[in-house]
Design a protein around this nucleic acid. Structure first.
Length: 103
DNA sequence: ATCCTGACGCTAT
DNA sequence: AATAGCGCCAGGA
């Protein structure tokens, strides 16, 4: 089943990201899995939505499967995590087991 | 239609 | 731990 209305898909993704509680995070893959049955698409598709449409959503609460984010977001994300007390690992990545939030 | 690119993920070096 | 290869999906040139 994969009737994709890009706009609708984007909304679904952003909606999920907005639902992530303060101090917790979810992953691209998790979101992709959650929407895959209705829209198809994979982690990259989710990432595309974030890259182009993520206005007004807590984008830093959506991280890669290893708890990191691409270099150009690391700094801002870091501030956000410190600000909202997101569990971090020494490496600077998010402590997924501790902070993971399942959509 | 083809090629390139990217806020991905997993396995193998 | 770091790097590389491959599969994957969708958009833009």
């Amino acid at each position: 089943m994969r009737r994709v209305d890009p706009e609708e898909y984007a909304e679904a993704v952003l909606a999920l990201v907005e639902r992530v509680p303060r101090g917790r995070v979810t992953t691209y893959g998790a979101i992709a899995d959650a929407l895959h049955d209705r829209f198809g698409g994979g982690p990259r598709t989710v990432a595309r939505v974030m890259a182009s449409g993520a206005g007004g959503v807590p984008w830093w609460r959506c991280v890669r499967a290893d708890g990191t984010l691409p270099p150009h977001l690391r700094d801002d994300a870091r501030q956000a995590y410190l600000a909202e007390g997101t569990p971090l690992r020494p490496s600077g990545a998010v402590d997924l087991p501790a902070a993971y939030w399942q959509p």
